[in-house]
């Protein structure tokens, strides 16, 4: 029996285990082991606190001062994560990578996107290795995995919002369509385009449905994110579809329906409000086998 994260469900209902746990505290001190990881863990706590403050400040003030500090924090965490990974402290490295990933996502500096990709790659290597032993930290591995998708989804919806939508024309509706395809495109065969990022996000969630079922705080976060993104996706899709109907563009309408199954799925639902329909869809995604 190892004292590892995958064995945490141990029930300590006998004196033998009580003794063991007491002993581990005892011998930890007696061995006078290195405190490098201990110091790094304190550093992780401190960085997390700083990042939280910066994120909240940045959100409230909406200026660039905090963004620069977030970018600096991202670089620092990235570097520390690499150092801990090199010294074999995978879990601490992953905590640093998680901070770096969230910070790179929220620094809004596009030239840092490739660094986020580096972090995701490094995280994947460590998480895959730890998963074999059943030791991969649930939250940190999952969060890093979704940060890039969240950033891209934000970017694409932001780009759609920048197009003048007060009076659609063939020209600007095509621009919206291209962007919405980058989010929701999905075809069974003869794919003309890559699968959309929003679809990838939904697929990622479906793949992790069992994990999320047992992780209440992460699940709540994901449900909220899906609600917001699906609603935003539906808004844009409705406007494009309305324009095609108005202009009697059956060809594009058919193409739209064929390549955006999530929107079709939404349209076929019986619920009376969009939120109810979306909630039901999310419920189904999160119960996917």
């Amino acid at each position: 029996m190892k004292w590892t994260t995958n064995n945490y469900q141990l029930k300590h209902s006998n004196t033998a285990l009580k003794t063991i746990v007491s002993l581990f505290a005892v011998f930890t001190l007696m061995s006078c082991v290195t405190t490098e990881e201990f110091t790094a863990a304190n550093d992780v706590n401190s960085m997390d606190n700083n990042l939280t403050t910066l994120l909240i400040d940045a959100s409230a003030k909406n200026d660039t001062g905090e963004k620069k500090q977030i970018a600096f924090l991202a670089a620092l965490a990235h570097e520390s994560g690499d150092a801990m990974a090199s010294s074999g402290s995978s879990k601490v490295a992953l905590a640093y990578y998680r901070i770096a990933a969230v910070a790179y996502w929220r620094d809004d500096i596009s030239s840092n996107d490739n660094k986020l990709l580096d972090v995701i790659d490094s995280t994947k290597v460590l998480c895959d290795a730890l998963k074999v032993e059943g030791k991969a930290p649930d939250r940190d591995c999952f969060v890093v995995q979704i940060t890039l998708l969240l950033e891209v989804i934000e970017d694409k919806f932001g780009a759609i919002a920048n197009i003048d939508q007060s009076d659609f024309t063939d020209g600007n509706i095509a621009d919206v369509r291209n962007l919405i395809d980058e989010l929701g495109y999905q075809a069974n065969s003869n794919n003309a385009k890559s699968q959309g990022f929003f679809v990838t996000f939904v697929e990622t969630i479906k793949t992790n449905a069992a994990f999320l079922k047992n992780h209440p705080t992460m699940k709540t976060y994901i449900v909220e994110t899906l609600l917001k993104t699906t609603k935003q996706y539906k808004r844009s899709m409705s406007e494009i579809a309305a324009y095609y109907r108005k202009t009697n563009n059956d060809e594009e309408m058919t193409s739209l329906n064929a390549t955006h199954p999530i929107f079709v799925q939404y349209g076929n639902r019986p619920e009376e409000t969009q939120d109810k329909r979306i909630e039901k869809m999310i419920e189904e995604w999160l119960t996917a086998e």
């Binding site: 004292w3 061995s31 990042l51 994120l55 934000e154 759609i160």
Partner: peptide, 26 residues
Amino acid sequence: AAQTGIDLSVERKIDNAIFLPTIRLP
């Protein structure tokens, strides 16, 4: 126990709940 003690101590720190910002949509 020696290494495990430090491991678990470190894990507890890196296991603290963290703030994850919500997605920003227009």
